[in-house]
């Protein structure tokens, strides 16, 4: 069971989206979020919906993966939809009953919001499905490095993130080992009330914390021995390079942005 932990939710396959520069994917995801909030009517929204669909198809990540990432968001989508239906009173009245009035305007807005949230989730999942977490932290470090001017050490933050990712499987293994050791000493994790079970975790958590601190201590020695002295004067083995495909994707997204602005201008705004 412990041998197939995948860190993050990277979906391993080979596709044009996987091969793209992580920095460009990050930029495009942010750009996507901005554009989708600029959409004012169904015509401009459909442009973004199309863009999402094409990106997903190009990524070769199966649809069920995206459904999986949507699942926890379903309640949020439903609640916003219901609120929109009941509170927005615009256009033709379809149903009027007691205090409830449902209008066409309410239905349109509810549908619009739902599609927008779904597109948002899909696009951000696409980034994490197609990019290895370490490359992502790397990309963040490189993109935010100009913040050095404000004395913000982006390198330190990125290094912390990388190390956290690196130690997730190690610590999961450790939890497993400690749990088994405590079970062998007669600890009971399965029965009892909720509070009893929470209390039963204490003998697992304390050794875990102690060992995590010891690991951190030893790791700092090992890093010092390998001449680590912060981000100054550090080089990287793997250089990130934008390819023609990256710029093509950027072009497509900018065209979508232009399209959205034009469509917003020519058609009446829904929201």
């Amino acid at each position: 069971m412990l041998n197939d932990i995948t860190i993050g939710q990277y979906y391993k396959t080979d596709s044009p989206v996987h091969r793209m520069d992580a920095r460009m994917k990050l930029i495009l995801t942010v750009l996507f979020i901005v554009i989708i909030f600029l959409c004012k009517n169904f015509f401009s929204l459909s442009v973004m919906f199309l863009l999402t669909a094409v990106s997903i198809l190009l990524s070769k990540v199966p649809f069920r993966m995206f459904f999986k990432s949507l699942k926890p968001i379903v309640p949020i989508i439903l609640i916003t939809a219901v609120l929109n239906i009941f509170y927005i009173k615009k256009g033709m009245t379809l149903l009027s009953f007691w205090v409830i009035t449902i209008t066409t305007g309410g239905l349109y807005t509810a549908f619009f919001m739902a599609v927008r949230i779904i597109c948002l989730i899909m696009a951000s999942s696409l980034l994490t499905y197609t990019t290895v977490p370490t490359l992502l932290t790397d990309a963040i470090e490189r993109l935010l490095s100009p913040l050095k001017v404000f004395h913000i050490s982006v390198h330190t933050l990125a290094m912390m993130m990388t190390l956290a990712l690196r130690f997730i499987p190690t610590l999961i293994e450790e939890i497993d080992r400690i749990t088994n050791a405590q079970k062998a000493r007669g600890a009971d994790f399965e029965s009892g009330k909720f509070l009893d079970r929470v209390r039963a975790m204490i003998p697992v958590l304390i050794p875990l914390f102690v060992s995590a601190f010891r690991r951190a201590y030893e790791l700092s020695f090992a890093m010092t021995c390998r001449c680590y002295h912060g981000g100054d004067g550090r080089t990287r083995m793997k250089q990130m390079k934008f390819s023609a495909a990256d710029f093509l994707a950027l072009g497509v997204f900018l065209a979508a942005l232009a399209g959205v602005i034009v469509l917003n201008y020519f058609f009446t705004a829904l929201i």
């Binding site: 690196r166 090992a222 890093m223 001449c227 004067g233 550090r234 990287r236 083995m237």
Partner: peptide
């Protein structure tokens, strides 16, 4: 376990030379 810093073997081996500022 406590001296490996990267999530991929070759990246970990590169850590030392990267700190020394060696050419990529």
């Amino acid at each position: 376990d406590n001296q490996i810093v990267a999530t991929i073997v070759e990246d970990d081996v590169a850590f030392g030379p990267e700190n020394l500022g060696v050419e990529p």
